[in-house]
């Protein structure tokens, strides 16, 4: 077990010395996950609100599909997106394969059902008195929607955190679409997979610690906002 202890020790050395390769993977991960979660929230929040708030024909079917997509395997998303953006695919001309933008696109497909489904659940779980209260206090139109979203803000924040966790921790998409290219598309998770395969535990452990720290920071931010109310 000495190699593990040595791995931890070397991990701290890599982090505190600002090892360029390690920080390149961290940077790529933050860029990809931030872009994919931002796009997913921008599109998923309004769609999730509509799915949870309004009744319309086919709502239950759409809900069933969205909920099913929560369990979408990353390699399946990777496969489908790969097929579309490869040179021979319909979107081959966009040059997305082995690029950060390609990984972002695939992660959005992975993460947006989580945002939609959990936002819809948050809105559906709102106290039934909320709408009547807001309206009887004079709110109309978009103000009713914004106030309803604000009342569900903790559950929606939790949805965002869950979606971010899925994006930052996935490995299948980053490996298949990004190609794990050093200094370019290599992310924390693909680097860990690669380094572990090579028996280089130090960098794997260092990146694993960073991943855990990011997860902890995001969750702590949620707890902080909850406490502040």
């Amino acid at each position: 077990m000495d190699y593990l202890a040595q791995g931890f020790l070397n991990a701290f050395v890599l982090l505190f010395n600002g090892d360029e390769e390690t920080f390149s993977a961290i940077s790529a991960t933050l860029k990809i996950s931030t872009a994919s979660i931002s796009i997913s929230l921008a599109g998923g929040l309004p769609l999730g609100f509509m799915l949870g708030y309004y009744d319309f024909p086919g709502k239950r079917q759409i809900r069933a599909v969205t909920d099913t997509l929560l369990a979408l395997p990353t390699v399946v998303v990777g496969l489908l997106v790969y097929a579309f953006i490869t040179q021979k695919g319909p979107l081959g001309g966009l040059g997305l394969l082995f690029e950060i933008s390609g990984v972002v696109l695939a992660q959005v497909i992975l993460v947006i059902p989580i945002v939609i489904s959990l936002t819809a659940t948050a809105i559906e779980s709102l106290d039934e008195r909320v709408r009547a209260t807001i309206i009887t206090l004079g709110a109309k139109g978009s103000r009713v929607i914004m106030s309803s979203l604000y009342e569900a803000r903790f559950a929606i924040m939790a949805a965002g955190v869950t979606a971010y966790g899925r994006a930052i921790a996935e490995v299948g998409i980053s490996m298949m679409i990004g190609g794990n290219i050093k200094w370019h598309t290599r992310t924390i998770t693909t680097a860990i997979a690669l380094e572990t395969g090579k028996g280089q535990f130090a960098m794997g452990i260092a990146l694993g610690l960073v991943l855990l720290m990011i997860g902890f920071t995001v969750n702590y931010a949620l707890i902080f906002f909850r406490r502040r109310g």
């Binding site: 106290d127 009547a132 209260t133 009887t136 004079g138 604000y150 903790f154 109310g229």
Partner: peptide, 16 residues
């Protein structure tokens, strides 16, 4: 405001 209703078991918005 023309009319407002205080419901039985009223709901307070999640704010101060």
């Amino acid at each position: 405001v023309p009319v407002t209703l205080l419901q039985q078991d009223p709901y307070l918005l999640k704010r101060p």
